[in-house]
Amino acid sequence: MPATAQAGETIKIRTAIQHPMITGHTDAGPNVAPRKIIHTFAVAYLDAEVLRIDVAPGIAANPFFAFNLRARSSGDVVFTWIDDTGEVIVETRQLTVT
């Protein structure tokens, strides 16, 4: 994502994360691997949630999400991924609005 934007401008944000997205069906034979997928991707901007995605098991490994955000004022954009094991990955990027 860009580090700066003008007020009112729509910026494009693209994210990718390393995650195997194990559907539970990947093991051949009688053993079923426990499902381990990212089930939620959420984005907060200026302390308010602006995006939440419920991710389905059919999503490929290392999921990529792209979306638009309207810049209002300077602040943090906080990205959160949550997977089935309860692991929470949080990344924060600062957006400076001029």
């Binding site: 693209r14 994210t15 990718a16 994360i17 390393q18 490994a61 290392n62 990529f64």
Partner: peptide, 12 residues
């Protein structure tokens, strides 16, 4: 570099 998932390993 963002859509090429291999770059995730490069960063790691």
């Amino acid at each position: 570099p963002i859509r090429n998932r291999g770059m995730l390993w490069v960063e790691q």
